[in-house]
Simulated scan of single mutants.
Amino acid sequence: MSRSLAQLEPGSLWFPQPHSALHEPNGLLAIGGDLTPARLLQAYHNGIFPWYGAHQPILWWSPDPRGVIQPDRLHISRSLQKRIRKQDVTIWINRDFMAVVAACAAPRRDCYDTWIHEELMASYAQLHAAGHAHSVEVWQGDEMIGGLYGISVGRLFCGESMFSRQADGSKLALVALCRHFSHSGGELIDCQMQTEHLLSLGAEEWPRTTFIQRLHQLRSQSVTPDCWKRQQVAL
């Protein structure tokens, strides 16, 4: 039996259940709605996220399987361990959130399009101001050479995007996130969709049902109170 795509209305926080998402394209769940902080939080708390191009309607996704990283199972290669031992960078939480978002939105060498357009950037800025969206930044002197950002949902962190301006920039940010988040009580990082880059760092693929069950357990639990305050952290 074919599945139909749910149409969302502006002003409503309703989403269909993730298991009703399309098989092709994998995980496409709904279209329309808006990007208010309340709707975005409702989405992330239920395993749903927005992903669409500029000048397109808002598309909402919940793919199966789901890419995740368990912080204590992060794979750190020998070359990355060597880079960490150099101690030539500093790691910050929320020092310049919007600079990270802008860097993630910038054109890449292999791709000129971006899904992080002005409407989404404005929404994530609101979530950051409200204490829900956070960045991990890799600084070398006064230059930010890598980073990532995402949404905190209890003891789960929903990773949205990462960037590098030097080799290993995003990998260092992910190592710092895993170590700091785990130390603060965090238990799972949502990668949304699996990539070769994430796979090399120890990402796993979970059935959507397994991910949703774990999300429901973690979203009502708390990390330490100072986890997401603006601070410099150890790598």
Rank of each mutant, 00 (worst) to 15 (best):
Q17F: 04
L120G: 03
I31C: 12
I76G: 10
E24D: 14
Q87T: 04
P57K: 05
I31G: 01
N26C: 14
H75D: 05
R66C: 04
Y52I: 06
P25R: 11
V89E: 12
F15Q: 09
R78C: 01
W92I: 10
Y52L: 08
D64I: 06
H75K: 14
I31Y: 02
R85K: 15
P37M: 01
E118Q: 13
P16R: 14
V100A: 10
V89F: 13
Q87P: 05
L22D: 09
P65H: 03
L80M: 12
L120E: 05
A102Y: 00
N94C: 12
A125L: 15
R85Q: 13
P63H: 07
L29Y: 03
G67C: 13
R78M: 00
A106P: 10
M121K: 14
E119N: 07
D64P: 02
R85S: 08
L41E: 11
Q70A: 06
D113V: 05
C111G: 02
H45S: 09
M98K: 01
L80F: 12
S123G: 08
L13K: 13
V89N: 08
H117C: 13
Q126V: 10
W51Y: 02
Y124M: 11
P65F: 05
I91E: 09
W115R: 06
H117M: 13
I91M: 13
L22I: 06
C111S: 09
I91T: 08
G67V: 12
W14S: 15
N46L: 03
D110I: 03
